[in-house]
Protein backbone atom coordinates (compact mmCIF):
# COMPACT_ATOMS: atom_id res chain seq x y z
CA UNK A 1 0.00 0.00 0.00
CA UNK A 2 2.14 2.81 -1.19
CA UNK A 3 3.09 4.74 -4.29
CA UNK A 4 4.24 2.78 -7.30
CA UNK A 5 5.07 3.92 -10.81
CA UNK A 6 5.27 1.11 -13.36
CA UNK A 7 7.07 1.79 -16.62
CA UNK A 8 5.66 5.30 -17.02
CA UNK A 9 6.10 7.18 -20.29
CA UNK A 10 5.18 10.83 -20.72
CA UNK A 11 5.88 13.24 -23.56
CA UNK A 12 4.85 16.82 -24.14
CA UNK A 13 4.39 17.07 -27.89
CA UNK A 14 7.58 15.78 -29.46
CA UNK A 15 9.53 16.16 -26.23
CA UNK A 16 9.80 12.90 -24.24
CA UNK A 17 10.20 13.54 -20.53
CA UNK A 18 9.60 10.22 -18.79
CA UNK A 19 10.84 7.13 -20.63
CA UNK A 20 9.94 4.01 -18.73
CA UNK A 21 10.16 5.30 -15.18
CA UNK A 22 9.57 2.60 -12.57
CA UNK A 23 9.68 3.49 -8.93
CA UNK A 24 8.32 2.12 -5.69
CA UNK A 25 7.99 4.23 -2.60
CA UNK A 26 7.94 1.96 0.42
CA UNK A 27 5.44 2.37 3.20
CA UNK A 28 6.67 4.82 5.81
CA UNK A 29 9.89 5.78 4.07
CA UNK A 30 11.14 9.13 2.88
CA UNK A 31 12.40 8.78 -0.66
CA UNK A 32 14.46 11.64 -2.03
CA UNK A 33 14.44 12.10 -5.79
CA UNK A 34 17.33 13.98 -7.30
CA UNK A 35 18.25 14.75 -10.87
CA UNK A 36 19.23 17.60 -13.09
CA UNK A 37 16.97 20.53 -13.74
CA UNK A 38 14.51 19.54 -16.45
CA UNK A 39 14.99 15.81 -15.90
CA UNK A 40 11.30 15.34 -15.13
CA UNK A 41 11.19 15.26 -11.34
CA UNK A 42 8.18 17.57 -11.05
CA UNK A 43 6.47 15.75 -13.91
CA UNK A 44 6.98 12.42 -12.11
CA UNK A 45 5.59 13.85 -8.87
CA UNK A 46 2.50 15.21 -10.62
CA UNK A 47 1.76 11.72 -11.88
CA UNK A 48 1.53 10.53 -8.28
CA UNK A 49 -1.60 12.64 -7.63
CA UNK A 50 -3.11 12.31 -11.08
CA UNK A 51 -2.37 15.90 -12.10
CA UNK A 52 -0.73 14.39 -15.17
CA UNK A 53 -1.74 11.14 -16.80
CA UNK A 54 0.88 8.79 -18.20
CA UNK A 55 0.94 8.13 -21.95
CA UNK A 56 1.84 4.56 -21.05
CA UNK A 57 2.40 2.67 -17.83
CA UNK A 58 0.61 2.64 -14.51
CA UNK A 59 0.49 4.76 -11.37
CA UNK A 60 -0.64 3.09 -8.14
CA UNK A 61 -1.35 5.07 -5.00
CA UNK A 62 -2.48 3.48 -1.75
CA UNK A 63 -3.23 0.22 -3.50
CA UNK A 64 -5.30 1.57 -6.38
CA UNK A 65 -4.47 2.18 -10.01
CA UNK A 66 -5.27 5.85 -10.68
CA UNK A 67 -6.30 5.07 -14.25
CA UNK A 68 -9.23 3.02 -12.93
CA UNK A 69 -10.68 5.82 -10.84
CA UNK A 70 -13.45 8.22 -11.76
CA UNK A 71 -13.21 11.86 -10.68
CA UNK A 72 -14.65 11.22 -7.22
CA UNK A 73 -12.39 8.23 -6.68
CA UNK A 74 -9.39 10.35 -7.59
CA UNK A 75 -10.42 13.04 -5.07
CA UNK A 76 -10.79 10.29 -2.48
CA UNK A 77 -7.15 9.30 -3.05
CA UNK A 78 -6.00 12.92 -3.07
CA UNK A 79 -7.43 13.47 0.39
CA UNK A 80 -4.72 11.12 1.63
CA UNK A 81 -1.95 13.01 -0.15
CA UNK A 82 -0.39 16.37 0.64
CA UNK A 83 1.39 18.13 -2.21
CA UNK A 84 3.96 20.89 -1.78
CA UNK A 85 4.31 22.77 -5.06
CA UNK A 86 7.70 23.89 -6.30
CA UNK A 87 6.48 27.48 -6.57
CA UNK A 88 4.07 27.27 -3.62
CA UNK A 89 0.93 27.77 -5.77
CA UNK A 90 -0.85 29.65 -2.97
CA UNK A 91 -4.28 31.00 -3.84
CA UNK A 92 -3.50 34.67 -4.20
CA UNK A 93 -6.98 35.93 -3.44
CA UNK A 94 -7.00 34.13 -0.08
CA UNK A 95 -5.11 34.96 3.10
CA UNK A 96 -2.51 32.59 4.50
CA UNK A 97 -5.05 31.35 7.03
CA UNK A 98 -7.65 30.64 4.34
CA UNK A 99 -5.03 28.96 2.17
CA UNK A 100 -3.93 26.60 4.91
CA UNK A 101 -7.51 25.99 6.06
CA UNK A 102 -8.94 25.22 2.62
CA UNK A 103 -8.18 21.52 2.73
CA UNK A 104 -9.55 21.30 6.28
CA UNK A 105 -12.88 22.75 5.18
CA UNK A 106 -13.22 19.81 2.86
CA UNK A 107 -13.19 17.45 5.84
CA UNK A 108 -16.65 17.32 7.26
CA UNK A 109 -17.28 17.97 10.91
CA UNK A 110 -14.53 20.46 11.73
CA UNK A 111 -15.70 23.56 13.52
CA UNK A 112 -14.37 27.02 12.62
CA UNK A 113 -12.58 27.05 15.94
CA UNK A 114 -10.92 23.68 15.30
CA UNK A 115 -9.85 24.82 11.83
CA UNK A 116 -8.34 28.00 13.23
CA UNK A 117 -6.42 26.04 15.84
CA UNK A 118 -5.13 23.52 13.35
CA UNK A 119 -4.05 26.29 10.95
CA UNK A 120 -2.14 28.06 13.72
CA UNK A 121 -0.49 24.79 14.67
CA UNK A 122 0.66 24.12 11.10
CA UNK A 123 1.91 27.67 10.69
CA UNK A 124 3.90 27.31 13.90
CA UNK A 125 5.54 24.17 12.51
CA UNK A 126 6.86 26.16 9.54
CA UNK A 127 7.68 29.18 11.68
CA UNK A 128 4.94 31.39 10.23
CA UNK A 129 2.60 31.81 13.18
CA UNK A 130 1.21 35.34 13.21
CA UNK A 131 1.09 35.60 9.41
CA UNK A 132 -2.51 34.36 9.23
CA UNK A 133 -3.97 37.54 7.77
CA UNK A 134 -1.34 38.22 5.15
CA UNK A 135 -2.01 37.74 1.48
CA UNK A 136 0.49 35.65 -0.48
CA UNK A 137 1.64 38.79 -2.33
CA UNK A 138 2.77 40.17 1.04
CA UNK A 139 5.09 37.23 1.73
CA UNK A 140 8.67 36.63 0.68
CA UNK A 141 9.44 33.71 -1.62
CA UNK A 142 10.61 31.53 1.25
CA UNK A 143 7.62 32.42 3.40
CA UNK A 144 5.32 31.50 0.53
CA UNK A 145 7.03 28.19 0.22
CA UNK A 146 6.58 27.48 3.91
CA UNK A 147 2.91 28.49 3.77
CA UNK A 148 2.52 26.00 0.91
CA UNK A 149 4.10 23.36 3.11
CA UNK A 150 1.73 24.21 5.97
CA UNK A 151 -1.20 23.86 3.58
CA UNK A 152 -0.02 20.42 2.50
CA UNK A 153 0.40 19.02 6.02
CA UNK A 154 -2.76 20.59 7.48
CA UNK A 155 -5.06 17.63 6.79
CA UNK A 156 -2.57 15.11 8.25
CA UNK A 157 -2.18 13.25 4.96
CA UNK A 158 -0.75 9.75 4.89
CA UNK A 159 1.48 10.65 1.94
CA UNK A 160 3.44 13.83 1.42
CA UNK A 161 4.95 14.87 -1.88
CA UNK A 162 7.45 17.69 -1.56
CA UNK A 163 8.64 19.47 -4.70
CA UNK A 164 11.84 21.22 -3.62
CA UNK A 165 10.56 22.45 -0.25
CA UNK A 166 13.89 23.98 0.74
CA UNK A 167 15.21 25.41 -2.52
CA UNK A 168 15.93 29.09 -2.02
CA UNK A 169 15.66 28.99 1.78
CA UNK A 170 18.48 30.06 4.10
CA UNK A 171 20.44 27.33 5.93
CA UNK A 172 18.58 27.80 9.21
CA UNK A 173 15.13 27.60 7.68
CA UNK A 174 16.28 24.67 5.58
CA UNK A 175 17.21 22.81 8.75
CA UNK A 176 13.82 23.66 10.28
CA UNK A 177 12.05 22.21 7.24
CA UNK A 178 14.36 19.17 7.12
CA UNK A 179 13.52 18.44 10.74
CA UNK A 180 9.84 18.86 10.03
CA UNK A 181 10.07 16.29 7.24
CA UNK A 182 11.84 13.84 9.56
CA UNK A 183 9.23 14.49 12.26
CA UNK A 184 6.35 13.81 9.88
CA UNK A 185 7.82 10.38 9.27
CA UNK A 186 8.83 9.54 12.83
CA UNK A 187 5.77 10.83 14.66
CA UNK A 188 3.03 10.35 12.10
CA UNK A 189 4.43 7.55 9.96
CA UNK A 190 3.99 9.59 6.80
CA UNK A 191 5.30 8.18 3.53
CA UNK A 192 7.10 10.92 1.61
CA UNK A 193 8.65 11.69 -1.72
CA UNK A 194 11.03 14.60 -1.56
CA UNK A 195 12.39 16.26 -4.65
CA UNK A 196 15.51 18.18 -3.88
CA UNK A 197 18.64 19.65 -5.41
CA UNK A 198 20.36 19.73 -2.09
CA UNK A 199 22.36 16.51 -1.57
CA UNK A 200 22.97 17.56 2.03
CA UNK A 201 19.23 17.62 2.71
CA UNK A 202 18.79 14.33 0.90
CA UNK A 203 21.47 12.64 3.03
CA UNK A 204 19.96 14.05 6.22
CA UNK A 205 16.29 13.21 5.76
CA UNK A 206 16.00 10.42 3.21
CA UNK A 207 15.87 6.68 3.82
CA UNK A 208 16.62 6.14 0.15
CA UNK A 209 17.69 8.37 -2.69
CA UNK A 210 16.70 7.88 -6.31
CA UNK A 211 18.24 9.63 -9.25
CA UNK A 212 16.32 10.49 -12.42
CA UNK A 213 18.32 10.58 -15.60
CA UNK A 214 17.03 10.73 -19.17
CA UNK A 215 13.49 9.85 -18.19
CA UNK A 216 14.07 6.85 -15.97
CA UNK A 217 15.57 5.90 -12.66
CA UNK A 218 19.34 5.68 -12.98
CA UNK A 219 19.98 4.69 -9.41
CA UNK A 220 18.10 4.04 -6.18
CA UNK A 221 19.57 3.17 -2.81
CA UNK A 222 20.40 4.35 0.68
CA UNK A 223 22.53 7.46 1.23
CA UNK A 224 25.53 5.22 1.92
CA UNK A 225 24.95 3.32 -1.30
CA UNK A 226 24.70 6.44 -3.42
CA UNK A 227 27.88 7.81 -1.90
CA UNK A 228 29.66 4.60 -2.85
CA UNK A 229 28.06 4.31 -6.29
CA UNK A 230 30.67 3.98 -9.04
CA UNK A 231 28.29 4.97 -11.90
CA UNK A 232 29.85 8.07 -13.53
CA UNK A 233 26.41 9.62 -14.08
CA UNK A 234 25.59 9.40 -10.37
CA UNK A 235 29.09 10.54 -9.37
CA UNK A 236 28.93 13.41 -11.84
CA UNK A 237 25.65 14.58 -10.37
CA UNK A 238 26.45 14.36 -6.66
CA UNK A 239 29.91 15.81 -7.12
CA UNK A 240 28.64 18.48 -9.50
CA UNK A 241 30.87 17.48 -12.42
CA UNK A 242 29.00 17.87 -15.70
CA UNK A 243 31.92 16.37 -17.64
CA UNK A 244 31.17 12.96 -16.07
CA UNK A 245 27.54 13.17 -17.26
CA UNK A 246 28.51 14.06 -20.82
CA UNK A 247 29.44 10.87 -22.70
CA UNK A 248 27.37 8.67 -20.39
CA UNK A 249 23.88 7.44 -21.19
Amino acid sequence: MSIVLKDVYKSFGPNPVLRGLSLEVRDGETLAVVGQSGSGKSVALKHMVGLLKPDRGEVWVDGVNLAHLDQEGLYEVRRKVGYVFQFAALFDSLTVEENVGLGLRRLRGMTEEAIRKRVAECLRLVDLDGYQDRLPSQLSGGQRKRAGLARAIATNPRYLLYDEPTTGLDPVTTTVIDRLIVRMREELGVTSVLITHDMGSAYRVADRIGMLFEGSLRFIGTPEEIRACPDPVVRGFIEGKPELLEGAG
Binding site: K46, V49, R78, Y83, F85, A89, L90, L102, R106, R151
Partner: peptide
Amino acid sequence: GTMRVTEQIDALETLAYD
Protein backbone atom coordinates in the same frame (compact mmCIF):
# COMPACT_ATOMS: atom_id res chain seq x y z
CA GLY B 1 -5.45 32.05 -16.58
CA THR B 2 -3.11 33.31 -13.88
CA MET B 3 -4.35 30.57 -11.57
CA ARG B 4 -3.68 28.02 -14.29
CA VAL B 5 -0.11 29.09 -15.07
CA THR B 6 0.84 29.47 -11.39
CA GLU B 7 -0.51 25.97 -10.67
CA GLN B 8 -3.24 27.25 -8.35
CA ILE B 9 -5.78 25.17 -10.26
CA ASP B 10 -3.56 22.10 -9.78
CA ALA B 11 -3.36 22.99 -6.09
CA LEU B 12 -7.17 22.97 -5.88
CA GLU B 13 -7.11 19.49 -7.42
CA THR B 14 -4.64 18.21 -4.83
CA LEU B 15 -6.85 19.57 -2.04
CA ALA B 16 -9.71 17.49 -3.49
CA TYR B 17 -11.62 20.55 -4.72
CA ASP B 18 -13.15 20.13 -8.15
